[in-house]
Amino acid sequence: MPLSKAKIGETYKIKGIEGKDKVKKFLFTLGCFEGQEITLISKLAGNYVVNIKDSRYAMDENMAKSIVLSA
């Protein structure tokens, strides 16, 4: 299941990241990669606010779709 279909307030385990290597690498440095936890905090103005490690990030739907969660 992609992050774009996740429920608000729930924490998930990341199954994998799809897409370009550059984006994957970048997400990796934030701590967003296979096996890590991610929480969907809110959906705001078409963006997804998530918690990775101890920080909040806002990402657009395109990026949210590329983050695959274990259901």
């Binding site: 984006v23 963006n47 606010v49 990402m59 395109n62 990026m63 590329s66």
Partner: peptide, 15 residues
């Protein structure tokens, strides 16, 4: 409209 380009950008920003 005037210039031909593809938009492939994905947006992520720390809050």
């Amino acid at each position: 409209k005037i210039f031909v380009w593809e938009n492939t950008s994905q947006f992520i920003l720390e809050l």
